[in-house]
Design a protein around this nucleic acid. Structure first.
Lengths: 165, 165
DNA sequence: TTTGAAATAAATGCTAG
DNA sequence: CTAGCATTTATTTCAAA
């Protein structure tokens, strides 16, 4: 209970002012925006902007910048969410299955959840047949999987995210 | 039933050769990779590479390039999936609710699905209290919502995607 | 379509306020 | 932390194949 740094509640990372939030929002909107355009949009000098962007990336607040693809155009027009329930919740079993699910061909994301299900596997496939085969060969094939329930995805829309837009 | 274009199943878009797929994979991995680095990685001239990337973006195969953020660092350390079930499936009601759900503060994505649920709402919030308030004020407040079921998200992992990595 | 090379534009490093 | 300027690097353009 010593008195080191009496007035600094934040752990270590940056305070993230409004300018940082504006930069983040801009990069979410267009991750390839040039530094010059970004600086103009948020109203600071280019060098300052580059400095801040680097800090945001180095600190891990911007985890990565990635291209998003039209899955249909790439031959995977069908998406589904597969709810996966386990028989045993042994820690090793859970971890192993998790590792396997992220390797499923066409897997977009895997959510480890609490509640009625254990995992939500979001996939994009070429056809209903491929979806069936995927489930049989990559999900229910595992002994610790007790039950699955598949929901066809009609449409996906992005939300506003945590920055509000 | 005339005989126009006897042998061309593909609609109109590009055939997408191996080079295109390599470019796409690279941009999914690092959407800010420089054109020079990209050209070197896939083994073509820089000008050719720029040409192809532009074509991929113009054709809509690359829908957007976006920054991904550390939601915890931004003050939204808690994620949940809220399963939403409707009372009536009147087309207008479905559409209206869909439009509302994507506007929910902290909404990451909204999936319109078929099966037991109607919508899967993935959100990131600051606290359990905020999650409760969000559900009460933005989801169950709508008369067409018959039932919701919330699952806490322990962890999210990206899958291999449709390009296999 | 692809390419190399010139012209344009942008990012980086340095200096200093 | 910020800004301005010089240097280095990247992107765009275009004639040619």
């Amino acid at each position: 209970m010593a008195g080191r740094q009496p007035k600094k509640p934040q752990p270590v990372p940056a305070p993230l002012d409004g300018t940082d939030l504006a930069i983040l929002a801009a990069l979410v909107d267009d991750g390839r925006m040039t530094n010059a355009a970004l600086a103009a949009r948020v109203g600071i000098a280019e060098s300052t902007c580059a400095y801040r962007v680097r800090a945001l990336r180095d600190s891990g607040i911007v985890t990565k910048i990635t291209a998003r693809l039209d899955l249909g155009a790439l031959g995977h027009p069908i998406q589904a969410v597969i709810k996966v329930r386990l028989g045993s919740h042994n820690r090793e079993h859970v971890r192993t299955l998790y590792d396997r699910l992220v390797e499923v061909p066409g897997a977009l994301s895997v959510l480890h959840v609490g509640g009625d299900d254990d995992f939500l596997l979001h996939v994009a496939v070429a056809s209903p047949q491929e979806l069936r085969d995927l489930i049989l060969e990559h999900v229910t094939v595992h002994p610790m999987v007790r039950q699955t329930e598949t929901q066809l995805v009609f449409e996906v829309r992005d939300g506003r995210g945590v920055l509000g837009r």
